[in-house]
């Protein structure tokens, strides 16, 4: 149509409308045009859509996608081996080469970690972001990235915690344990040292612990999560008695689903709260909620519904 078009001469509200109608990738590419354009896009951040940012250090990839997953864009963060691109652009004050690829762009940085964090910072200015980290624990820089993200007060869609070295456990846990309120789904895949039991000073919305033998009954009774999944737990039928008594009297106020896998859970005619496990349907003392159970081999799944 009109080219070149003086985009930045338009009023702020009009620019905001234009940015709203752009796709995620178009907005990111436009933000790389110049600092002035970037500032205008950042000014409209509050009106921007919420996006989920998947950090995948293993594949050197940051995937940005909409909550309905209909719109996505990938940013690859590569090490620059000296490629000189005359069309280089600036991101967060660093000059770098950018190449367009199918569904995204490749960016080349002199410092890989700095590149990753710079892209994250750039995205945070454009969008309202929620982060997901699945397999980053293979990277040496995993903990540094998570700490930085927590410092930036970002929200996490999914956070996977896995400690590579035993020595890192105390320090790292202390850094993040009071910030887990920013996490929607927490997956803990580490096996902890016997002398270290993580203490939660804040809780995510949903928690899934793969090796949960360290997660005691006392910890569970204080857990306000909506979904709790414990694998390889050391809890047994007696503990279930305690858990359900607590729930009946108003404990676990947010609980919608509890899944426990434990070799100590037996379904051999034993009862919980005086009832046979197979037929159990219980209600809270005030009658406001109902819980039903599914039994598996060494596992129990409790689903809570609000009573009619």
């Amino acid at each position: 149509m009109y080219s070149p078009f003086p985009l930045l001469r338009l009023p702020g509200v009009v620019l905001c409308e234009i940015f709203k109608s752009l796709k995620i990738g178009e907005k990111i590419k436009l933000s790389l045009c110049s600092k002035k354009v970037s500032i205008q896009i950042n000014n409209a951040r509050l009106y921007s859509q919420k996006v989920i940012v998947d950090l995948d250090r293993l594949c050197h990839k940051i995937k940005v996608y909409s909550e309905n997953n209909k719109d996505s864009f990938e940013i690859f963060v590569h090490f620059n081996y000296g490629i000189c691109d005359p069309n280089s652009i600036k991101v967060e004050g660093r000059t770098l080469s950018v190449i367009s690829v199918l569904h995204g762009i490749k960016t080349f940085w002199k410092n890989h970690q700095e590149g990753f964090l710079s892209v994250i910072r750039h995205l945070l200015k454009i969008f309202r972001c929620k982060f997901s980290i699945y397999n980053d624990f293979y990277s040496d820089l995993y903990e540094k990235t998570i700490s930085e993200l927590f410092n930036l007060q970002v929200e996490f869609k999914t956070l996977t915690i896995h400690f590579k070295r035993a020595g890192d456990q105390h320090l790292f846990w202390n850094q993040i344990s009071n910030k887990l309120g920013l996490v929607e789904d927490l997956l803990i895949s580490s096996t902890f040292d016997s002398d270290f039991i993580p203490v939660f000073t804040s809780w995510p919305q949903n928690i899934n612990i793969l090796n949960s033998d360290w997660f005691t009954l006392e910890s569970l009774l204080t857990c306000p999560c909506t979904t709790i999944t414990l694998w390889n737990s050391s809890l047994g039928n007696k503990d279930l008695d305690e858990i359900l008594k607590n729930w009946k009297s108003g404990g676990f106020p947010n609980l919608e689903r509890l899944i426990i896998h434990s070799h100590r859970i037996r379904n051999n005619g034993t009862t919980i709260l005086g009832m046979n496990l197979e037929e159990m349907v219980i209600q809270t003392d005030d009658g406001s909620k109902k819980a039903t159970f599914k039994l598996g081999y060494q596992s129990i799944e409790m689903s809570v519904t609000v009573s009619q």
Partner: peptide
Amino acid sequence: MLRGKNTQEMIKVITL
């Protein structure tokens, strides 16, 4: 005007 363009092409489309 900006759809389907890469950053370099966008720079040509908009006057800074």
